[in-house]
């Protein structure tokens, strides 16, 4: 009973107010305050994106999305995500296998280093690759002589995106696999399964929802990243502009309808991500890592 009153779940007919709860007017005030804050800070910007995108009508919206530069930006965004997300997926699985299934020295340091990109400013994430591969960078002259362009080209965009989305899959899988332990894998091996068989038939089915969760968040960030790719892109229209960069250019040209039209696609991506993420949490909460944040 006390647990019920504390979590506030439906208690039938409370005749006397519990000593563990606040008076009704305080509750309403607090709920109202929180909802007002969220509506003002979170909901309104989201609504504004769609309102601004559609305020000249659907035709203008559609034209903005189908003009060649916008299409090129959408394609480039998909290409960059299609390379960087699988790369980080592979890394995330490998890293969580060695961290969660084995005990070795320096493990905590390794985990800290894997999380490092989250605490680096996006702009610095782009800057470091310019310092390495840019024309005045460490390998700049060498790359120029070889005729390889990384900065202001697609490889730079991919590298910067991989950096900012680096920890997503790993940090979802490591706690999950640590929680699950390795008893099932050991049993499979003892019964004669090979290492790969064990991995595909035992480990992957156990972690599949956590894997999907990590990939989902990784993809959302990969497609929406702005600061890091902005530094390495060079902003060449139709060539090195991803969707967020295209939004910036249109906005700075005062082409607000077009800017918000492209932005609305990214906002829809964010909404789909939130819906799938929430659905995963409700449906498979137990099969996701408990310690997510």
């Amino acid at each position: 009973m006390p647990a019920d009153t504390v979590t506030g779940t439906s208690v039938p007919m409370p005749p006397v107010r519990s000593a563990l709860s606040e008076p009704g007017w305080v509750r309403i005030l607090l709920i109202g305050g929180a909802l007002l804050f969220l509506a003002l800070f979170l909901l309104l910007p989201l609504v504004a994106v769609f309102a601004e995108a559609l305020h000249r009508g659907f035709d203008a919206y559609w034209t903005a999305l189908t003009e060649p530069d916008a299409v090129a930006a959408i394609e480039l965004t998909l290409i960059v995500a299609a390379i960087s997300v699988p790369a980080n997926l592979l890394f995330g699985v490998a890293a969580s296998w060695c961290v969660a299934k084995f005990d070795f020295r320096g493990k905590n340091l390794l985990i800290t280093l894997i999380d490092l990109p989250f605490s680096v400013s996006p702009v610095i994430s782009g800057l470091i690759y310019v310092l390495l591969f840019g024309l005045n960078g460490l390998f700049g002259t060498y790359l120029r002589d070889m005729g390889i362009q990384i900065i202001f080209a697609v490889p730079g965009l991919v590298l910067a995106t991989i950096f900012v989305t680096f920890p997503f899959v790993a940090r979802e899988l490591i706690p999950l696999m640590q929680e699950q332990g390795s008893d099932e894998e050991e049993a499979a091996l003892v019964l004669g399964a090979s290492g790969w068989q064990t991995f595909w038939r035992v480990t992957i089915p156990n972690i599949k929802w956590g894997l999907l969760y990590g990939v989902l968040l990784c993809n959302a960030r990969a497609m929406g990243e702005f600061g890091a790719v902005s530094v390495v892109s060079g902003h060449i229209r139709g060539e090195t502009n991803t969707m967020p960069l295209h939004v910036e250019i249109l906005y700075n040209e005062y082409n607000f309808v077009a800017a918000f039209a492209v932005a609305s696609l990214l906002a829809m991506l964010a909404l789909v991500t939130l819906v799938v993420k929430t659905a995963l949490e409700w449906r498979f909460g137990d099969e996701l890592a408990a310690t997510r944040h």
Partner: peptide
């Protein structure tokens, strides 16, 4: 979680 999911440039112009 919207600010985690919404691309920063979109939040910026909005």
């Amino acid at each position: 979680d919207l600010p985690f999911a919404l691309p920063t440039a979109v939040a910026g112009i909005a």
